[in-house]
Simulated assay, not measured.
Amino acid sequence: MTSCCDVTSTGTLPAVDAEQVAQLCKALAHPARVQLLCYLAAYGACYFGNLADILPLSPSTISQHVTILKDAGLILGSSDAQRVCYCINPERIGQLKQLINAL
């Protein structure tokens, strides 16, 4: 019987962009950010006020989480005259999926 650790190593690391994986995983390292991302993926574009309604957190805390997701490129924000509308960035989500699959 073989164990899962009985694999032959080639001695080389797989071709994974470790910096990108780490950056994206860090952005997703809080349940509130995962929930925000899932909400935007399910419902499309959303104004900040609506995001503040879906989590039992203060608007300033949600704003901090949104900023982290934006800085990682996972969500996009566009402003109209008085409000900011957020949506997922499908290209960056696609990159995240590719990076995770490469692990």
Rank of each mutant, 00 (worst) to 15 (best):
S58N: 12
S58T: 09
S58K: 12
S58G: 12
P59I: 01
P59W: 00
P59C: 05
S60H: 14
S60D: 14
S60W: 15
T61K: 11
T61S: 15
T61F: 15
T61G: 07
I62Y: 09
I62Q: 09
I62V: 14
I62H: 07
S63I: 11
S63T: 13
Q64D: 13
Q64F: 15
Q64W: 15
Q64C: 14
Q64S: 11
Q64Y: 15
Q64K: 15
H65S: 05
H65W: 03
H65E: 03
H65R: 05
H65F: 05
H65N: 10
V66C: 12
V66G: 06
T67N: 07
T67A: 11
T67P: 00
T67F: 01
T67R: 13
I68C: 11
I68T: 12
I68L: 13
I68M: 06
L69T: 05
K70Y: 02
K70W: 04
K70N: 04
K70E: 12
K70H: 02
D71F: 14
D71T: 12
D71C: 06
D71Y: 10
D71G: 06
A72C: 10
A72I: 10
A72F: 14
G73R: 04
L74K: 02
L74T: 02
L74G: 03
L74C: 02
I75Y: 05
I75F: 12
I75V: 13
I75L: 10
I75Q: 02
L76G: 04
L76N: 11
L76D: 09
L76I: 05
L76K: 09
G77W: 01
G77F: 04
G77E: 04
G77P: 01
G77M: 06
S78R: 15
S79Y: 07
S79G: 03
S79Q: 08
S79K: 02
S79R: 09
D80Q: 03
D80S: 07
A81I: 08
A81F: 11
R83N: 00
R83F: 08
R83I: 00
R83L: 00
R83S: 10
V84E: 04
V84C: 03
V84R: 00
C85L: 13
C85A: 15
C85W: 00
C85R: 14
C85S: 10
C85Y: 00
Y86A: 06
Y86N: 09
Y86H: 07
C87D: 01
C87R: 06
C87A: 13
I88N: 01
I88R: 06
I88D: 02
N89P: 10
N89T: 10
N89Q: 13
N89W: 10
P90T: 05
P90F: 02
P90D: 00
P90L: 01
P90A: 02
E91A: 02
E91M: 08
E91W: 08
E91P: 08
E91V: 12
E91Y: 06
R92M: 15
I93G: 09
I93V: 12
G94T: 08
G94L: 00
G94C: 06
G94V: 03
